[in-house]
Amino acid sequence: MSANTTAIVTISNRLGLHARPAMMLAETAMRFDADISVRRLDQDAGVDAKSIMQLMMLAAVCGTELEFTASGTDADAAMSELTALVKGNFSEDAVDDH
C-alpha cells in the first residue's frame, strides 16, 4: 500500500464542473487503479472520482475548492493528470475570458 496523495485545486472555468468536465475527470480517473475521491473543501463527505453522477452531485461552480485524495500504486500519476484537467479549465473558457 502506498500513502495517500492529496491536492487542492480551484475550479476556474466559467461553467464550473458540468457534465463534460465531470466526464473528463471520471474517464481519466477510471484509467488508474488508485482509489480517488473528491471533496468540496466546504463539505465533509467526498465522492468517488470515477463516478460522473457523484461528481455532478458536488455542484462545483467556478471558484469552488476541491480536494482530491488518491491512494494506490499509481496515485501520484492519477493526481497529476486530474489536477492538470482542473487547472487547464478542462480546455474551456476561464472565468476572466468572459
Partner: peptide, 17 residues
Amino acid sequence: KPEEHLEAMEAVFSNLS
C-alpha cells in the same frame, strides 16, 4: 447562470443515483 444548472444537476443526481 451556470450555477443554477449545476444546482439542478445536483438535485437530479442526488436522487437518480
